[in-house]
C-alpha cells in the first residue's frame, strides 16, 4: 500500500511543479488537473472515498472548467497559427503520461485491495453526512450564505459595465468643448 501512496505523491508533486512553472495557461491547467487527480487517489488511499469523489467532481470538474472558460474568454482574438501551435499533439503527451501512471497505480491498488482485508478504518460517506448535518449544521448554513454571496458577487462583477458618469460631470464634459470654442 505504501508504494501506491508514494507513486501518487510523486505524480502530484511533479505535476504541481510543472503547473506552477508553466508558460502557457492551458497547459498549466492540464498539469493542475493531473495534480488534483493524484491528490484524489491519495484521499482514496487515506480512507476517504467520499472526499476523493468530491475532489474530482468539484475541483477537477467545476473549478477547472471555470478556469478554462475564463482563459478562453480572454483569448478572444487568438490568431489561427497560435491556435494550431497550442493544439499540437506534443503538448498533451506529458500530462496524459502522468495521468496514465496514476491510472495504472489506481487499478493495481484496487486489485490488491479486493484480495486483502483492510485493517484500519474507512470513513463512509454516511458518517460524513450525519456529522455534517448534525454537529456542523451551522457551518453548512454559513457555507450556503457564503456561496450566495459568491454568486451575487460574481454576477455583479461579471456584468459588462457601461461607463456611467455623474450627470453634472457629463454636462461639464459636454460643455467643455463649447466653452473652449467660444
Amino acid at each position: 500500500m505504501n508504494t501506491f501512496f508514494y507513486i501518487a505523491a510523486a505524480v502530484a508533486l511533479i505535476s504541481t511543479g510543472l503547473a506552477i512553472s508553466g508558460r502557457n495557461a492551458i497547459h498549466a491547467l492540464l498539469f493542475l488537473i493531473v495534480s488534483l487527480l493524484a491528490i484524489s487517489v491519495i484521499f482514496y488511499i487515506l480512507g476517504a472515498p467520499f472526499i476523493a469523489a468530491m475532489e474530482i467532481i468539484i475541483y477537477a470538474g467545476a473549478v477547472m472548467v471555470l478556469f478554462i472558460f475564463v482563459i478562453m474568454m480572454l483569448n478572444v482574438g487568438m490568431e489561427s497559427e497560435k491556435e494550431s501551435r497550442w493544439l499540437k499533439p506534443g503538448m498533451w503527451i506529458l500530462p496524459s503520461l502522468l495521468a496514465l501512471i496514476l491510472l495504472v497505480n489506481f487499478v493495481f491498488m484496487l486489485n490488491k485491495m479486493s484480495h486483502q482485508n483492510i485493517p484500519g478504518r474507512i470513513i463512509e460517506p454516511k458518517e460524513v453526512g450525519i456529522s455534517l448535518f448534525s454537529t456542523y449544521v451551522l457551518g453548512v448554513e454559513i457555507a450556503g450564505m457564503l456561496l450566495l454571496a459568491g454568486i451575487v458577487g460574481a454576477y455583479h462583477l461579471g456584468k459588462q459595465k457601461k461607463k456611467v458618469l455623474h450627470r453634472f460631470l457629463k454636462q461639464e464634459e459636454i460643455e467643455q468643448p463649447g466653452n473652449t470654442e467660444g
Binding site: Y59, V128, S131, L147, G150
Partner: peptide
C-alpha cells in the same frame, strides 16, 4: 472530511 467540504465551498466561492 467535514472541514474539507467547508474548504471546498470556500474555494468555489473564491474562484468565482
Amino acid at each position: 472530511q467535514v472541514m474539507f467540504i467547508f474548504i471546498l465551498a470556500v474555494t468555489s466561492a473564491e474562484v468565482s
